[in-house]
Write a protein that binds this DNA or RNA. Structure first.
Length: 649
RNA sequence: GCCGACGUAGCUCAGGGGUAGAGUACUUCCUUGGUAAGGAAGGGGUCACGGGUUCAAAUCCCGUCGUUGGCUCCA
């Protein structure tokens, strides 16, 4: 083989020989024209490159299309450049900050100077982007010296790019050019703007330069683009659907919860139906925990300041918490409890423990209060008072992994019962560069981190690892579920903790008759009930699984002549623990059905002359329609069957 | 907390310096109806709150509170 040839290894393991300087695009072309038309970028030895950038050495190459995550992000990054080009064309003199791709779409931070920019202008920019995209301008990569780069942006008067340049090293700087637009950019980019077929600018928001509130606020324009118009339509439909499922809207409509200015922001008020839903979740969790060897405990809503000084929470969060409440005479200080664990440590300590007692698992649906910045509050997902399905497992060091695995099993059972099929586990480790953020010894951290990693591997979890996401006292495993619309939510969490046992001087007597220190595992499968209910509402669009539904059925008499029979049916069903109201209003059956459908009540039981004569009821299922007639007992059996199926282990 | 938008009946929203509106929900009456809205009448609002401008403010201005989209934060 001549030295003008290089070997390219493709993802399927095949090796092909190409001329030196071949590009990803040319490789694609050699495979099929269709592939070449769809190639957005190429992953060369694990690094994402422009599809048309020449490859000079043997390499492993993966061609990236819209179906690859990296392909999408390249596409959106290039779209940000396209938007910047449109902005410069429409608003000469605008200054540009940064314009990255994000999980869905992209944004660009823009300084419009004195110009007032309002959202209505987004359509104008969209149109300009579409026009520029049609020109199929190539994205051209250029190496440039730092001096020339600085000269260019000095001339242009763009202080933000100059600020960025300050932190870059000479010899490492590239510009990308497309059409009339040049940007400082590491790349990579898609071959040309023609790939961008559908553009939607979604909203604008303020954002500080470099995220620092001391800096100037720029206008951030969010957008999303697609290679096909149809995909944009689907995306917009998804947004509509998300709006329709918004738990704040459904929570109000289904009368689950409310807020009151007078009670205070971020402090949810649970209405009777929401409370019923919550209680069902709590009972479900209690049953599951009882089976797994947990014991329920109850602790107060406040605790002495010293308790949190011991735990380390006061030092870490004291300033950013609700401030202590003082007693009028003694001047003692108490904090609203932000965590249940210190209380549980004191329960552990109330008597000497033997190694034979461990593990001890204390569970509490503990309501905690945390000060959240006013701008952070959002429906039930971010509140100032919430209830955790909290538990703390105190165990011997050698039991950590086994206990951890048991917790994973419990979490997965819970997800399954609630219809969350799609989840990943995020392992959050400490950021080794920021040791000051964490308490505890390296040794303890290493042990905790490896326990989590091993347990996750043993359960075959699909994991991602994030550095710097750990809690200050220990690493954690968080479960991220995907809801019915593909949105990711963080729910359950499991954390290994070697610090609190030290701080609280927890002990047990080992088989060697010596004192030993237990290890704690914090865990909350739901996380917070508030947040969990919010996610559940959006996941099922308010159509709760039957076993959770706050109103499982309603009895609809055809006319008031059948009220008495309806009462009889109700009482029979009550004996089977099937609860619901009779809709006795002076309305026609069509109206009663409509109202029950709107309220998303799972079953409508219609009783009229025919049913009364036969001792039956006509069953109509929400969203599905008439199921035919059942005796009350037959219905109860059918009803219970549905529930036990969804709760099967 | 910071920046922007918003705040009118329980809910969804119209109005925009000169007597407060609609749909829906609610109440009463008529109707006793068979699988997604029967008819009529009626009650309900300090137009978030506090100041200011004006002969006159729901409307314009300022402030506060709240909601909301972001930013920063999240034990």
């Amino acid at each position: 083989m001549s030295d003008q040839q290089i070997n390219i290894t493709l993802p399927d393991g095949s090796v092909r020989s190409y001329e030196k300087g071949v590009s990803g695009l040319q490789i694609a072309l050699s495979i099929s024209e269709g592939l070449a038309r769809n190639v957005l970028a190429a992953k060369v030895n694990g690094e994402v490159w422009d599809a048309n950038r020449p490859i000079h050495e043997d390499a492993t190459v993966q061609l990236l299309t819209w179906n690859d995550k990296d392909g999408k992000s390249t596409f959106w990054h290039s779209s940000a450049h396209l938007m910047a080009e449109a902005l410069e064309a429409l608003y000469p003199g605008v200054k540009l900050g940064i314009g990255p791709s994000i999980e869905t779409g992209f944004y660009y931070d823009v300084d419009f100077g004195d110009r007032e920019f309002d959202g209505a202008e987004l359509e104008k920019i969209e149109a300009k982007m579409a026009e520029l995209a049609k020109q199929k301008n190539e994205y051209i990569r250029k190496d440039i010296s730092k001096t020339d780069a600085v000269a260019y942006f000095t001339e242009k008067g763009d202080e933000y790019k100059l600020d960025l340049l300050e932190r870059l090293e000479d010899g490492n700087i590239t510009f990308y050019e497309q059409g009339n637009f040049v940007d400082l950019c590491r790349g990579p980019h898609i071959p040309n703007t023609g790939f961008i077929k559908a553009v939607k600018l979604l909203n604008i928001a303020g954002a500080y330069w470099r995220g620092d509130e001391k800096n100037k606020m720029l206008t951030r324009i969010y957008g999303v683009t697609f290679p096909k118009a149809k995909e944009l339509a689907e995306y917009l439909h998804m947004l509509e659907e998300a709006k329709r499922r918004d738990h704040r809207k459904l929570g109000r409509e289904l009368e689950l919860f409310t807020f009151s200015e007078k009670v205070g922001m971020g402090l949810p008020l649970w209405l009777p139906k929401g409370t019923l839903l919550r209680e069902r979740l709590v009972n479900f969790m209690k049953r599951a925990q009882d089976k797994s060897g947990y014991q329920q405990v109850v602790t107060p809503h406040i605790g002495h300041k010293a308790l949190y000084e011991t735990s380390g929470h006061y030092e870490k969060y004291g300033k950013d918490s609700f401030q202590p409440i003082a007693t009028p005479n003694e001047g003692e200080e108490f904090l609203l409890k932000p965590m249940n664990c210190p209380h549980h440590c004191e329960i552990y300590k109330h008597k000497p423990r033997s190694y034979k007692d461990l593990p001890i698992r204390y569970a509490e649906f503990g309501t905690v209060y945390r000060y959240e910045q006013s701008g952070e509050l959002h429906g039930l997902t971010r509140v100032r008072g919430f209830t955790q399905d909290d538990a703390h497992i105190f165990c011997r060091p050698e039991q950590v992994k086994e206990e951890f695995i048991k917790v994973i099993d419990l979490v997965l059972y819970v997800f399954r019962a609630l219809g969350f099929e799609d989840y990943t586990a995020q392992i959050s480790l400490r950021d080794p560069e920021k040791a000051e953020k964490y308490i505890g010894s390296d040794d303890a951290w290493n042990k905790a981190e490896s326990a989590i990693i091993e347990a996750a591997a043993e359960k075959g979890l699909d994991t991602v690892t994030e550095l710097g996401e750990a809690a200050f006292y220990g690493p954690k495993l968080d479960f991220m579920v995907k809801d019915a619309l593909g949105r990711k939510w963080q729910l359950g969490t499991i954390q290994v903790d070697y610090q609190l046992p030290d701080r609280f001087e927890l002990e047990y007597i080992g088989s060697d008759n010596q004192k030993h220190r237990p290890v704690m595992i914090h865990r909350a499968p739901f996380g917070s009930l508030e947040r969990f209910v919010a996610v559940l509402i959006e996941h099922c669009a308010g159509n709760f699984p039957l076993w959770l539904s706050p109103e499982q059925m309603t009895i609809l008499p055809i006319s008031e002549k059948f009220t008495e029979y309806a009462e009889q049916v109700k009482s029979i069903l009550e004996d089977h623990d099937i609860m619901g109201a009779i809709d006795n209003r002076d309305e026609k059956i069509g109206r009663k059905i409509r109202d029950a459908e709107v309220k998303k009540i799972p079953f409508m039981l219609i009783v009229g002359e025919k049913e009364m004569a036969e001792g039956k009821l006509s069953v109509r299922k929400h969203g599905e329609g008439d199921l035919g007639s059942f005796t009350p007992e037959e219905f109860a059996t059918y009803f219970k069957g549905i529930i036990s199926e969804s709760l099967a282990q």
